[in-house]
């Protein structure tokens, strides 16, 4: 099937079937490496993309469901994004594999006013797993960016 996806502000034509998940289409056909597959069941958040500004799991999103929506990946955030800067300032990463998903999730939390306390931040990030265990610094980074 031919689909037109709006990715990071530009229209991209792709060839994707319903059994193709958005993350694979973005990686294989759009050439983006920010969204990543880890668990493959929507649990861990390394495949997070924003769909009309809301985080979703790209690894289980059938590609046609993204039609007509604005898709934002880490590559689509502005260079001076304050969440990115805060993650960097707070050294809130190790291997970095989960970090684009963390940043996008935090971006949405902050935009919607859901990062008002550490408790709320932990809750919002609960579905984004980091095996290096950088959570403490990530929580600090989100807290700082929210201020």
């Amino acid at each position: 099937m031919n689909l037109t996806l709006n990715v990071n502000g530009r229209a991209v034509d792709v060839d994707a079937e319903p059994h193709d998940m958005l993350v694979d289409v973005l990686r294989d056909q759009v050439g983006l490496t920010g969204p990543r597959v880890t668990c493959g069941v929507g649990l861990c958040g390394t495949c997070t993309v924003l769909l009309d500004g809301e985080p979703v799991s790209g690894c289980i999103l059938m590609a046609p469901l993204a039609q007509g929506k604005e898709i934002t990946t880490i590559e689509g955030l502005p260079e001076d994004d304050e969440v990115v800067a805060s993650f960097d300032r707070n050294h809130a990463f190790q291997c970095g594999y989960c970090i684009p998903g963390m940043v996008l999730t935090a971006r949405d939390m902050i935009d919607k006013g859901h990062a008002c306390s550490r408790e709320e931040i932990r809750e919002g990030l609960g579905g984004n797993l980091c095996r290096c265990g950088c959570y403490l610094k990530i929580i600090e980074a989100v807290e700082e960016a929210a201020q």
Binding site: M21, G40, G42, I60, L65, G68
Partner: peptide, 25 residues
């Protein structure tokens, strides 16, 4: 296909296959 969060897992794993799909989007 509604939100596709459960179906997406099954489709990704090859447990659901179909030629036609009805999306509620």
């Amino acid at each position: 296909v509604a939100g596709g969060t459960f179906l997406g897992i099954l489709v990704r794993q090859g447990l659901v296959e179909a030629d036609e799909w009805i999306s509620l989007q």
